[in-house]
Design a protein around this nucleic acid. Structure first.
Lengths: 117, 117, 117, 117
DNA sequence: GTGGTCTAGACCACG
DNA sequence: GTGGTCTAGACCACT
């Protein structure tokens, strides 16, 4: 899978990495059980530091998107990603709230909003 | 209008302030031309640093939600908030993208997503 | 509170740090809402690297023992530590299992075991 | 005796192996003098590296749970496992201490703790 | 001055 | 060769 990072915007690299991998899973490009590059490999490929990749992997592991084997490397969680729970819905709502507020202000209609999605 | 800040979450205070004011406009609690408290006043009211309020006001001014007069103080932009333009749509899409990706992963259906909105 | 680290044993420093702080809370030496030293301060005090302290703090935050404010520093979680849940019981059982097995082998009686606790 | 390894958790395989064998002795499934599979045999049976099995056996030998004969192979220590000594009690206490501290924090009562055991 | 992020380089345990 | 840990030093955002 192709990883596309943007070093110009101020979003942390490790977050971009996390989002790219989640997007890869969402699109089906990364299948449960599939192997990801090693920390060092991926770091070398995209020209960033090992620790930055590691930080992304650690958070993905904590959120149960991947499993990290000490020797065998990193694989997409074989059971698939975690399902939406109450906490996720709350977080999602919290993140969406300001976006919706601003859209309302700017008279960006609900339909357009949904269509964009 | 009541400002509600949460000092526990790691979202910067000035951002929370911006979002609260935009939400106030969205809800109609703040009308075009209406006067906002001065930087010092608001800072004292909610017990935060003056610079923090100033930073929020400056960004709101730059995004054309408010106008800052030397004498009259701070007022909601009399022409109303700016309309949605191409740039806004792009930013919005950029912010929504990772949320949608994760929702897809977690089998959070489109319907539920829209309903949440 | 006094932090006592042992650099000789092979238990990672950040883990020792986590355990010391949890023990401090258990003993009541650290009260909810109480402030902990800053990352840099604590690192300097015990002569270790800032990142090692940070790693410990991050894990304590994730486990909801502490709250990290961006500017105000680090405080013991005001609501007190999280209560025991199903997951904790399972983890505890998993960790205790091998200890109990070996104690049985070595004819270390149940009474002595409990007394030790 | 059935050996059950979990390659997903981050506990080293050789440690899991050690614990399983000790548990086997504790349960009486493995009797003093009983023969264990050879390093190669066991490695092949459970599909792991020979060195891993060897490492587990070496540690079990050093802790006097098993005896390794050049010709007869590996057998459970005929005198039975070593009894609890001062050192064992200290180690046990050291391992239990953080578990108890966290249990206290989480208001996991002593009774429940003992009952779990 | 606080934590957040990133880089760089080192040693170790594991298999 | 893999991830885990630790050190060291740098820049940045926030208040």
């Amino acid at each position: 899978m192709l990883i596309q990072l943007d070093f110009e915007i101020d979003k942390p690299i490790y977050l971009q990495l996390i989002e790219q991998i989640i997007a890869g899973i969402a699109k089906g490009q990364l299948q449960p059980g599939e192997r990801l590059p090693s920390v060092r490999q991926l770091a070398a490929d995209i020209g960033i530091n090992m620790h930055t990749v590691n930080k992304a992997y650690q958070e993905l592991r904590q959120r149960e998107f991947i499993v990290i084997h000490r020797q065998q490397g990193v694989i997409i969680h074989p059971d698939g990603p975690p399902l939406a729970d109450e906490q996720f819905r709350n977080t999602l709502e919290e993140l969406l709230h300001p976006l919706i507020a601003e859209s309302l202000c700017r008279q960006y209609s609900e339909d357009e909003f949904i269509q964009l999605i």
